[in-house]
Design a protein around this nucleic acid. Sequence first.
DNA 1: AAGAACCGTATTGTATGCGATTATTGAAGA
DNA 2: TCTTCAATAATCGCATACAATACGGTTCTT
Lengths: 253, 253
Amino acid sequence: MPRPARPLAANKPSLNGKAAETGAPVPRAQAVYKALRRAIIEQALKPGVKLPEDAIGEQLGVSRTLVREAFGRLAVEGLVELKPNRGANVAYPTLEEARDVFEVRRGLERLVAENLAGRLTPAQSAELEAHVRLEEKAHEQDGPESIRLSGEFHIKLAEMTGNALLLRYVQEASSRCSLILAIYGRPHSSECAVSEHRQLIEALRAGDAARAAALMDHHLQSVVTRALLAPRGERDIRDVLAPYALSEGLTPS
Amino acid sequence: MPRPARPLAANKPSLNGKAAETGAPVPRAQAVYKALRRAIIEQALKPGVKLPEDAIGEQLGVSRTLVREAFGRLAVEGLVELKPNRGANVAYPTLEEARDVFEVRRGLERLVAENLAGRLTPAQSAELEAHVRLEEKAHEQDGPESIRLSGEFHIKLAEMTGNALLLRYVQEASSRCSLILAIYGRPHSSECAVSEHRQLIEALRAGDAARAAALMDHHLQSVVTRALLAPRGERDIRDVLAPYALSEGLTPS
DNA sequence: AAGAACCGTATTGTATGCGATTATTGAAGA
DNA sequence: TCTTCAATAATCGCATACAATACGGTTCTT
């Protein structure tokens, strides 16, 4: 299918040379990785979609080699499924995997809360407050902005721990949650209650580690029940088609 | 309410070539990845060692392409450091990174303990008991066997949760701990006190989640202090030379 | 002799090509 | 009409080839 090849990633001004004095000669493989990652998280590439090496490489202006490299990393992070000899797809987590992710995420973020309790600098505290105010603003219009901000709140917290590994894991879990919500989430429910964020900040500032951890725990727990309880789509076409078949008097095997 | 721990997909059989007619044609890239991973964890490849693509490829009988792919994955997991245009080295975590890893590991394994409390099947319980007995045997001879078994105990626990992501993270943290102990650990201290493993099993079987979590927490905490408190080597030459400088009346900048 | 500029070599970054595996289409047989 | 099966097309797995960059030693300059 011939389509006009318009490079999706036109963000590499000078690929030869030193990237215009910006310091690091970043390998393009990483650029491909980031591009795909964003596309998946923002649901431009929907869960389950096929990812042919050729097409993507062409679109991004690189060879299959780099695309494959990116696939490998995305697969490790659970954003892409890699089947031998059958190529790559955007991951399509099962409900069970979804629960696993949320459970791990709860554990990680509880750690974040404990780590941060009583150790927030005034600047950090203020930053969080400001963020929550943004969330409230966005919440009124109830756009996709609201969802993004909710997620960023948690990332910000993880950053503030100064623990790079913890941050990476939280980010990873968070990315996978995007996927999961794309599949099983309710259409426009903003996942996080802003008030819960407020309470959390309060507990952190008070240095009450136990309470902060409990709040975080409860918070994420309620995210699950709010967003995840109503499975919307099914993985298998059969599941999608079953009701249609029945209404037409056909009997799925 | 205790639901039975769910079984995890059985791990794949041999991976060389065609897996001896048994089904899946495992990509060789994965074989390379596993080989390097083991070599690093078992300290055949010591922290900081240079990893030239072609030398390794030659040794393993594959092209640089596959070696690079493996490097990418190992880098994500923190076992390899990848510097643009300057190749790969076995990771050499700083003391700070080490602390980060241990902190995250504590959080993860606490989650394991909570998850497992009161949900061990008799078979699982027996398996853990048997493992601990092995540990005791090995402890007497105090070989490297003892260390390996200690690590495996924790992996086994993670497996039993049936949470694939949790298992992956625990494995990852565990691998990195191997690296860390290779650098900063005391020569032959077996990291885990066997008695602590025993207590932990007891608490799990009793279904006392809080106690199990606390035990795990304390257990890992003591691993850190036992093994990590005496830094043996330093990353930076400056750290190595500092004491010499001082003893000679020189003042390092 | 110390430092800077130069050049050859070793190694990495990326693209391309070839054989192998899988998907697809269409025709023949039931 | 529904299968079965084979031929073809599409895609992947991997090796190789070429270009770009960094390292080490040598020579030239001061």
